[in-house]
Write a protein that binds this DNA or RNA. Sequence first.
DNA 1: TCCAATTATGAGAAGACGCGACGTAAAGCT
DNA 2: AGCTTTACGTCGCGTCTTCTCATAATTGGA
Lengths: 367, 367
Amino acid sequence: MRSLGVTNDTALLRRLNTRATLHALRQGGPQTLTQLARAAGLSRQTAEVALSDLTERGLAEEAAPTEGRAGRPARRFRFRSEAGHVVGLDVGPRRILAMLADLDGDVIEERRLDVDEHLPAAERLALAERAATACVEAAELARGGVWAATAGTSGVVDRSGRVSVSHLIPGWTGLDLGGLVGRWFGCPGFAANDANLAAVAEHWRGSARHVEDLVYVLSGYRAGHGLLLDGRLRTGRTGSAGELGRLPLTGWEDSSVVLAEAGRDAEEVFRAARAGDERALAVVDRLAHGLARGASALVLVVDPELVVVGGGFSRAGELLLGRMRAHLAQMCLNPPEVTLSTFGEESIALGAVRMALDHVDRERLGL
Amino acid sequence: MRSLGVTNDTALLRRLNTRATLHALRQGGPQTLTQLARAAGLSRQTAEVALSDLTERGLAEEAAPTEGRAGRPARRFRFRSEAGHVVGLDVGPRRILAMLADLDGDVIEERRLDVDEHLPAAERLALAERAATACVEAAELARGGVWAATAGTSGVVDRSGRVSVSHLIPGWTGLDLGGLVGRWFGCPGFAANDANLAAVAEHWRGSARHVEDLVYVLSGYRAGHGLLLDGRLRTGRTGSAGELGRLPLTGWEDSSVVLAEAGRDAEEVFRAARAGDERALAVVDRLAHGLARGASALVLVVDPELVVVGGGFSRAGELLLGRMRAHLAQMCLNPPEVTLSTFGEESIALGAVRMALDHVDRERLGL
DNA sequence: TCCAATTATGAGAAGACGCGACGTAAAGCT
DNA sequence: AGCTTTACGTCGCGTCTTCTCATAATTGGA
């Protein structure tokens, strides 16, 4: 049974209308009062009241007036996206990527570094913290300028932001990653699985913008599945949704095994395949078959609108995708669309940014 | 991006508070004004206004006042659950079950009949209609007294209520079942897959009351999986979520095959197994293994809190459940709880009632 | 340069809603 | 009969939104 929030008095109306105004302001960019009111479905006066409230809270300010039009020039307002910032991190087995974004989600600073996959947890964390704080310092933010931070990583991450299992990163299991990144900046901190965050990023600004139900297939050195239903992340009770490790699928080959047998580097195989090398093409097909096998389980269970393929192997491009489509068509009655990730390697950190922004929108902006 | 409904004026507050009052009234049974106001988080006056509105709409009425207490007797109000009714149907391959329920979801009338599995669609539908109208006539409802109707059936049912695939029922594929049942009573009509509706019923009043994410395993002559996440039904893009038919699981035996090999009737096998018959126990174990295989795919993908086992085979009881738990533990890292269905054979029609009530709550009561 | 047309602003009035307060009504208890 | 208890009903206040109308600040053409 749905809970009906405490509704009460007219202050709720105020909040609701301020929220609608803020929403319209963020969606439509700098606008005049009249435009804003229409977009929010309110009267001009109400929008004005809401705007003065937002201005007081530092979330809106007057911009240069319209020019070139007849009549009295209208005051224009803009969303102060610089009012706050969030940090998004990708702490992977071989790579660390830190992003600082404003309230529009525009990435202002970015630090990327390669790390050894055997690097111990403490040093890995120190590097991640340094990368993130470097972003913050470069942007010259005031103290408390970071409103939320999220880290994505390989492994199972539970609801509280703790890594409950990680095979790829040494010393990672049991780590309270969400709590840690929060402490770095004195703000709420979160953590999530990398494939899940990648799915979030693709839904936010990537290939899955127009879709509410999607499966993300992370393939490469890091592998996993991300699941978004109704536009919301599904991590499951323990955070292990989409972890098919123990699913007894017939003919399910691990990607790394396929490549190891090929005895060649992934990039090399893809290049050869594109050049028409028969054996390389066979390897790509086996890769595609393995990915389709895993994806088919998710597809048959949740029947999504779209499958997005990302991660290192997605660099094989349409070659891989075509084979995956063919294999999926064998495994599903009405197979969904399959498409490439838009952001590639950046999607995990971007998804982390989005998750942090979700928290800001909810808790701090009241959206 | 969440849409921010048209918020506007104070009429919204009215609606919100009326809604809160209705909610409190339905939850708490007959109550005095003061109790109602407290439960809804409103002032007494506001609750009174809301109640007069509800009374006008026929949804509330004054009940006998409290007695035996000191002080002026308080007026009491009750929800008029008899203000409207819904029909829930289970049109299965071998059984038809029709239910008529009031707005509390209490089943008032019920008609059940066995049918031949080869019965053509037209005759099956005629029987279903007769069973349902018999319920309505027995209750002596006024014209327009049925506010919504839902039918559950075997096969894939898409969002519009059309059966897109059905192997078990002849002539069923392509049928606009939802539209049909709506036309029978001149009200909105819906249709859904049987396992999905069973999941809804268990979440509503059965074994899954306290849980928001669950997988329902329908086992027996009818088989399938139902999926509820965040308390909401997940049917997927085409309605085929949970249809694992093509999933290449190793060692996945079809229940019917297992029983056929055993050469005995299901009931007989269960009875023998309970008596300790070794061979019967082995058959039950193979059944459990097959069910666990299928369930494991759903469990690994969505990581639910609970698995509910229903359908004919669930009559094997704890015997089957215990084996399923053991097998699931082999297939999942942290296996969820497994429990028996509360309603057994009635769960599909009950779920249909709930789905019809959902529509009424949303569209007619504005909840 | 001046005037009309255009567009937005700002103040005031009206309508709706919810809530607190206060007096009143209706019961039980002594 | 009188006191206590509990709830009812009404009044007034504050908040919120919208409508209206006079006013202000531009542009473009005469």
